[in-house]
């Protein structure tokens, strides 16, 4: 199950959030060697881990095995504040209907298909949450080589600029379209039939989306 954590229920997730910051340190600082993010306390935490952030946490045996961070683009966020120069095809998207995705990652023991499919489930959760918030797009800065992978998985991605070098490789800014058919495709790939998200201590956001009432293909039942 994937659980949604916002400032309104963060008090229920003190330990889990700490575990998430440690997991991020393990992945980004130790595995990927993003030295700028290194901190002596072994927690990977930046200026965007603010009350504005929403986290989706994947749990296995009560431990955090994966996570992703969502930020409103109307406030401070990575693309707008640190990488705006990557947007040359279009301006930095800033809208209530666009959130930014950062730090989508899973523990190395749970990354491969067949190991719980943590990344698959997180992505399903991401789109479920985005649809219930009524978002139209999600923006992101990602490694350019992941673009091919994302497209193959069925993400509808539009580049906001050309790939550009950064210290650890080549990155690119892009926006993903949020729609029901993309989520249905992810369910199919993940081999699951329905919602993966759990809201504890907060209500599930709900907007009256036409897409919400569309009947699912029979194969998913």
């Amino acid at each position: 199950m994937i659980e949604v954590v916002t400032k309104d229920n963060a008090h229920l997730y003190g330990e889990a959030l700490e575990e998430m910051f440690r997991l991020r340190h393990e992945i980004y600082v130790k595995e990927r060697n993003w030295v700028d993010l290194d901190r002596p306390d072994g927690l990977e935490k930046d200026q965007f881990d603010s009350p504005d952030a929403t986290y989706l946490l994947a749990f296995e045996d009560n431990h955090v095995t994966g996570c992703v961070r969502l930020l409103p683009t109307t406030g401070p966020h990575l693309l707008g504040d640190v990488f705006p120069h990557l947007c040359e095809a279009a301006p930095v998207p800033r809208s209530e209907e666009v959130f930014e995705i950062t730090r989508l990652c899973a523990h190395r023991d749970f990354r491969q298909p067949g190991q719980g499919g943590v990344l698959d489930k997180l992505v399903c959760g991401l789109f479920e949450h985005a649809l219930s918030l009524g978002l139209r797009h999600m923006s992101m800065v990602t490694d350019a080589f992941l673009l091919a992978k994302g497209l193959q998985f069925g993400w509808k991605l539009r580049p906001l600029g050309l790939p550009a070098p950064y210290r650890e490789g080549t990155c690119i800014a892009c926006v993903a379209t949020v729609d029901r058919s993309t989520l249905d495709g992810f369910y199919k790939i993940a081999g699951i039939t329905g919602p993966v998200l759990n809201y504890v201590g907060i209500p599930k956001p709900s907007v009256d989306l036409p897409g919400e009432h569309v009947q699912r293909p029979a194969s998913l039942h």
Partner: peptide, 20 residues
Amino acid sequence: DSRSRAAIHLMAIYCHDKLS
């Protein structure tokens, strides 16, 4: 140059995906 390199990189990713 670095610009045409980046442009070919981007076009290649999308062209490969759509043709596949």
